[in-house]
């Protein structure tokens, strides 16, 4: 992976994150939820970054499983870790919003439950990679594709099941005052996700080089 991509992406994400609070503070208060609705700008954006990471994980896993590309496997590991990180942000910011809006920290609603299960699948992927031993990379690749298959269900869960979670369908209809800080934040999270992926792939590449060196030393 290009070594210069990380500082460029990280710098760009810092610009997005520096401007985002200004746009969020200037955004009008939502009529029913008031101030607490402003959590939504980072909450939704963190899920979008998680979706992106899972998409990368699924595609890279498929490439590794069917085309045997080691570079794709390294990208998949990096994407799985990033997905867990952004999922964790969503799972923490969600309850902080819910305790004010719903009066409870957590409810076993269709959307929240699916999000929790998806996070557990990703954690399972990382555990499998860490402790599964030889061949676990292929098993994990299957799990990665399974995680990606869950994405559309998670996205439409608020539309097809009875749930108290706000529906995703409101997002494209948001007026500019709400939409600008939201999509700005989404862009910031997506760029941050790409920066973290770049750094994490670099780590995997260095580990692969180290493994090859150790093998060469053993053969001597």
């Amino acid at each position: 992976m290009n070594k210069r991509a990380f500082p460029v992406l990280m710098g760009l994400s810092l610009v997005f994150f520096a401007v985002a609070p200004v746009l969020i503070v200037r955004a009008p208060y939502e009529q029913e939820m008031g101030l607490i609705q402003k959590i939504f700008y980072f909450h939704f954006a963190s899920w979008m970054a998680m979706y992106l990471a899972i998409l990368v994980l699924g595609i890279a896993s498929a490439l590794f499983l069917f085309r045997r590309k080691p570079a794709a496997d390294r990208l998949a590991v990096a994407a799985a870790e990033a997905a867990v990180v952004f999922g964790l942000m969503g799972l923490i910011t969600g309850p902080l919003w819910a305790v004010k809006s719903w009066g409870v920290w957590w409810t076993w609603d269709a959307r929240t439950t699916m999000a929790m299960i998806l996070e557990l699948i990703l954690v399972a992927y990382l555990i499998l990679r860490a402790y599964g031993g030889p061949g676990s990379d292929r098993l994990a690749a299957g799990l990665g594709m399974f995680a990606m298959a869950n994405l559309p269900f998670l996205y439409v869960s608020t539309e097809i099941w009875r749930t108290i979670h706000p529906p995703t369908s409101v997002v494209p209809t948001l007026p500019v005052d709400f939409g600008l800080p939201l999509w700005w934040s989404v862009a910031g999270f997506v760029v941050l996700c790409l920066a973290l992926l770049t750094a994490r792939v670099r780590l995997e590449e260095q580990r692969a080089t180290l493994d090859r060196l150790y093998l060469a030393l053993e053969e001597e």
């Binding site: 101030l35 963190s46 942000m89 923490i92 910011t93 902080l96 305790v99 004010k100």
Partner: peptide
């Protein structure tokens, strides 16, 4: 709401 909002951004 303010402490919850601040907590959310700090957590991120």
């Amino acid at each position: 709401a303010a402490p919850l909002l601040a907590a959310a951004y700090v957590v991120v």
